[in-house]
Design a protein around this nucleic acid. Structure first.
Lengths: 244, 244
DNA sequence: AAGTGGTCTAGACCACTTT
DNA sequence: AAGTGGTCTAGACCACTTC
């Protein structure tokens, strides 16, 4: 006879299993790119049937936390693999050409987080944060200017050099070096006139229309870990979105 | 003994059931807002187990073609209900205020579809199409100017009057009056300078930054049935997107 | 009480991958 | 041959809605 759960905490078994697996992922029990135990093993570990584990894993795969590979096993999703990388890169050439952008790091400073940033990151006001500014170009032509803020505690040791030396998506670096995997993000898009740092970094006249993208990114269990603002030059490229 | 499927048409039973249900939806066997038969009835009709029907219905519910309601039944999704309406309306006030836009129909003409439009709608070039132009305002302040093209054959009888008289989302009208339910859409976003018809409809100076949204909408079985271009004034409002 | 979808189990067999 | 996830079935019971 096991103890009963407290009122209002009833939830289906498979959701409890899902939460346990998510917690193991957050704790780093299995690394991105690695296989997690088989369904049979997980069923034994949690004391439920394979069907229940399957339903939990299905849900996590639908959220892109896990990746199922028939005959091989179930893997922890990673930003080192193409499918994950493109989910967070929505800018696309008008003719469908795959894009390959070069990153130039313009700044990487440790500062006290401004109030708005601290709130978004759920930090105490004035706590340390890392500010990064960079430009993304394609064949020498500037396309994006970005400024992002990260919680200082999570990103100790992040520097302009490490950002510049790293080949591949920034989120892959965060995952590999700072144990921080971006799971989802919410964005707000606006059209604005170029000015200030964005205009000069992109080399366009003030007043040029730019797509302004404000992003908040979250890691496991919906913890916010990045605030990002990007200015996109949408000449020959566009932001792609699927509504369904 | 039933006949064997041809080579390369093997697919899981539940996907075949899913296709059969989709075809019934396309054919209008059950109307938007109505309940479809219960899982037990569908299982009997198709000669499979309830579990297999369940998996097919789960997939269709995940694609928002169906809506499950515990204890009541499974319903055909409808643009007359809030959840569906908001999936295709991504513009949101910065402070989160729910928005209520007034539509002013500026034009509704039957024309020969331009080449690009005809291609997008998979029509023969020169076939008839309906062009609609309208302005969306919020409290008297213009927010969006839109131009959209629909295949003439599907939208016989569509007129400026019917558009103007109808209360509610345009897709609800299309669903109720023209048997055409928009299922999904893909959009391309750019930042552009206001000019021409968009500038005058929105009452802004030429050169004002606008968010340009190009949309293609599809009905059952991925048939394209709408091409739409919208110019959004993003002052106090933004386009919201979730990446996951 | 009866009907609906939601959960959980157990077992069989299939498709794919690796050894 | 052995191990993985993928499909399909059958049956039990639960939660919610309606009569």
């Amino acid at each position: 006879m096991s103890s009963l759960p407290a009122i209002a905490t009833f939830q289906p078994l498979y959701q409890q299993i899902k939460a346990l697996i998510t917690e193991a992922l957050r704790a780093g029990e299995w690394r991105p790119g690695q296989a997690i135990p088989s369904e049979v093993e997980l069923a034994a570990r949690f004391g439920v049937s394979q069907g229940t584990v399957r339903k939990a894993v299905d849900a996590l795969a639908a959220e892109h936390l896990l990746l199922r590979r028939q005959g091989k096993g179930t893997y922890v999703a990673s930003h080192h693999e193409a499918p994950a990388a493109f989910r967070f890169l929505r800018i696309v050439a008008d003719d469908g050409t795959p894009i390959e952008m070069d990153s130039t790091v313009l700044a990487c400073r440790r500062l006290r987080a401004p109030g708005e940033v601290a709130r978004a990151l759920e930090q105490r006001t004035g706590e340390q944060a890392v500010q990064v500014q960079r430009r993304l170009s394609i064949g020498g032509r500037p396309l994006v200017f970005e400024e992002l803020w990260l919680p200082g505690s999570r990103f100790r040791g992040l520097s302009a050099e490490r950002l510049a030396d790293y080949k591949g998506p920034m989120y892959a670096l965060f995952e590999a070096e700072f144990d921080t995997r971006m799971i989802r993000a919410s964005e707000r898009l606006r059209s604005v006139a170029a000015e200030g740092a964005a205009a000069s970094a992109l080399g366009v006249a003030r007043g040029t229309p730019l797509l302004l993208v404000d992003r908040r990114s979250y890691t496991y269990q919906d913890r916010p870990v990045e605030v990002r603002r990007g200015w996109y030059l949408t000449r020959g490229h566009h932001y792609a979105d699927e509504l369904s």
